[in-house]
Simulated assay, not measured.
Amino acid sequence: MGILTVLFLLLVRPVSSYVSLWRCAIEKRQKFVISFFGIRGMGSLFYLSFAIAQQASNTRMNFGP
């Protein structure tokens, strides 16, 4: 099961995503990044970097009134 998961994450999903972007007017490098990480993956990287930056600056975000 683990090998199948890795195969899908590192081969099947990126290749199928890259093929779906075949006719888009963006650079090959951008297509590769989008196909590897995906839209949800990009959001996850953003939130992870945000959390790391907040921890590094040791500040608290105040979202309440």
Rank of each mutant, 00 (worst) to 15 (best):
W22D: 03
I39H: 11
Q55A: 08
G41L: 00
S44H: 11
M61H: 10
L48G: 04
I34K: 06
Y47G: 08
V6A: 14
V33G: 01
I39L: 11
T59D: 01
C24N: 13
M42F: 15
P65G: 13
L11N: 04
T5N: 14
R13P: 04
V33A: 05
K28C: 03
G41A: 00
M61N: 09
S20K: 15
L9F: 12
A51V: 02
P65L: 13
L48D: 02
L45S: 03
V15F: 05
V15Y: 04
T5D: 13
T59W: 04
P65T: 07
Q54I: 03
A25W: 12
L4R: 13
I34L: 15
F36K: 00
A25T: 09
Q30W: 11
R40K: 14
F36S: 01
S17H: 15
Y18S: 03
M1L: 09
F63S: 06
V33M: 07
M42W: 08
L48Y: 03
P14N: 01
T59S: 08
L48C: 04
W22A: 03
Y47W: 12
R13T: 10
I34G: 04
S49N: 05
L21I: 01
I3A: 15
M1N: 08
F36E: 01
A56W: 08
F50C: 10
R13Y: 06
I26W: 01
V12H: 04
I52H: 04
L4V: 09
R29K: 12
F46M: 02
L11K: 02
V12W: 05
A25P: 07
Y47A: 08
V6S: 14
L7F: 14
F50N: 07
W22K: 10
G64Q: 15
E27G: 15
F36G: 02
N62L: 09
V19L: 11
V15P: 01
V15G: 00
F50H: 10
F46I: 01
L4K: 15
R29N: 11
L10M: 12
S49C: 06
L9C: 09
I39Q: 06
F32M: 09
S44T: 15
R60T: 07
R13G: 02
F46G: 02
M42L: 15
I34Y: 15
S20P: 02
R29W: 14
Q54H: 01
E27T: 13
C24H: 14
N58F: 06
I26D: 01
L21G: 02
A51R: 04
V33E: 04
I39T: 08
K31P: 00
F37L: 06
V33F: 10
S16V: 09
I26Q: 00
R60F: 05
Y47D: 05
L7Y: 11
S57I: 06
G2T: 12
I3F: 13
Q54S: 03
G2H: 11
